[in-house]
Amino acid sequence: MTISFAIIAVVIIAASVAAITLRHLIHCSLALVVAFAGLAAAYLQLNAQFVGFAQLLVYVGAVSILVVFAILLTRSGENPNEEIFSKTWMAGAAVVVAVLGVLVWAITNSEVVKREPSPATEVTVRGIGDVLMNRFVLPLEVIGLLLTAALIGAVIIAMSDRQERKMK
């Protein structure tokens, strides 16, 4: 347990709590960005440089912008007096507490954490590329297909309104 890990953990937890409790949705999304950046830092701590940078590029650069645009397009941030939690929040909170309890119990009683951790290994981008092109080439192709489908699907879902108007 090092100081840097403690700082990163506090940042991640604080930012993610802020992301789901703040009243204004734009503030929520900005707090979410801080949480994502903290996770990227955690990946760097864990020697996974490539994943950390990919996390920054995808989450901070793309997903957060998408969330912000969605908030602005649905005018969600403009009604300050609205209740922020749903009607069934009590049940949800109970489920969350139960899940957290089970997870913490499982982690603290696990056999895995009593093993000696393996020493840090050197991960090169070349190694990742080799694995990606040999062992994981099928998942890579599938994810390419999935991203293309998601791109087209997202465009079609979001612009369906205009097509209907044109048909009339």
Binding site: V60, G61, I65, V68
Partner: peptide
């Protein structure tokens, strides 16, 4: 370079 540069948009 590109991932940090993406923060500027935000």
């Amino acid at each position: 370079f590109f991932s940090v540069g993406a923060i500027m948009e935000l």
